[in-house]
Design a protein around this nucleic acid. Structure first.
Lengths: 229, 229
DNA sequence: CCATTTTAAATAGGAGTCCTATTAATATCC
DNA sequence: GGATATTAATAGGACTCCTATTTAAAATGG
């Protein structure tokens, strides 16, 4: 039924590749944090909060980071001690608190985000067509993860109210962003846009269909057969 | 000089995508470890050691995991307590120890590797051509990381003594593995083959050229221009 | 061939991640 | 209005991960 068990299936090997790259990503982050006085997890929370003007609840942070809520509490306590986040009561719910990044926290988040990265260098070395295809693959993967409930809806163009997939068929930038009032090509798509507003599920689903059919199916590289051995 | 600073460049967004997927990967691993009695880091070390019959030195494990040696010492101590690894003196160097996985450790590594994974499911949902292109992209990224010294040489086909890229030009499986004596297609490529033997650098480099030129450059999806805004 | 430098690993010490389980204070819903 | 659910904080424990230091064994070099 499920090919998850096949020891050497393509998805299994792809996952293995992601695991390897993830290790380097983490090492990059440690190097970037270096003398800054935060660690990778703290930097990631700072980056997450920097994009959210109205702050985020602890629970939402946990969902975004895919960890348990008490873990977030630990990290927020560390960031709080360092003066990088503040907590203010949520007017809508007396149990909840909205967490916001401070100016200093934002500055540190920026520093880390702009630091060098071996992975980014490696990605920059891919040719533009490969980059675009990789971005498309990521969008599909992230969307599937969303549909499966593994992560909350991300602020991607394809799930945004402002997005009009394939509004300009055949043009080099076939999509359109109503918010920016600008044509958008596949390479311009965002995985986390600050202006994102979730479209409702029916629209999302229709948009996805239009988006997917916007381009001809990729031509397969060599072989689609089971493989040797 | 370096586009690493561009806040919204394609490589930057791609890295962001990898970060997101990495979070889910970690969560998958926690779920897989569940009642098994190990944690993701331990499972990864077990998986790494399972593929290495002659064991690995602590230092090599650290390099593969992209962490500092004392971190590996911690993890090995935990695995040792649980009886999942053994350390034996290295005959070639009295300072060093070779770490090997025990039968039980191998069993646990297998259990975790075969557990379900949201990321693997999402990868399985991609169509075959996309999977193949993604695998190719990963190979290029990992190779660049190797060239940059960010990670040790991985046991990929493309760096193996047994690999003959494009030995059968135009065939659906254009490459050849001398060890298996079998034709190999792009989808069959391994990122970590137990039979890997490193080719020497000159051969590796020549093989890479042959491998790269084996397929026509990917046709770009829409747009290669800077983008809106 | 012995002194120096380098290297492998273990140790010390400390901050912080991450989990499960529990508790306390709302909120929500019949 | 009281049972149930939800948000977050707390407790407790195992472990990750770092830098710096120590120990011991190799490699180097005069």
């Amino acid at each position: 039924m499920d090919q998850a068990e096949a020891p050497d299936s393509v998805p299994t090997r792809l996952r293995e590749g992601f695991e390897r790259i993830a290790l380097v990503l983490r090492a990059d982050l440690w190097a970037a944090c270096g003398a800054i006085g935060v660690n990778p997890t703290q930097a990631q929370v700072l980056a997450l909060l920097s994009g959210q003007k109205q702050g985020l609840r602890a629970k939402e942070i946990a969902a975004q980071m895919a960890v348990a809520p008490p873990t977030v509490a630990d990290t927020l306590a560390a960031l709080d001690r360092k003066g990088l986040v503040t907590r203010s009561p949520d007017p809508a719910d007396a149990r909840a608190a909205r967490v916001r990044v401070t100016e200093e926290g934002r500055r540190i988040g920026r520093l880390v985000a702009q630091a060098g990265s071996q992975v980014r260098n490696a990605l920059a070395a891919l040719d533009p067509a490969e980059q675009a295809n990789l971005l498309l693959a990521q969008i599909k993967i992230i969307r599937t993860l969303q549909e499966a409930g593994a992560i909350p809806v991300q602020r991607m163009c394809v799930s945004c109210r402002h997005f009009r997939p394939n509004a300009h068929p055949g043009a080099p930038r076939p999509h359109h962003c109503v918010f920016l009032n600008a044509a958008v090509g596949d390479r311009d798509l965002r995985l986390d846009c600050g202006e994102h507003e979730a479209a409702d599920p029916a629209v999302r689903s229709a948009n996805w269909t239009a988006f997917e059919t916007a381009r001809p199916p990729l031509q397969a590289p060599t072989t689609a057969e089971p493989g040797p051995t």
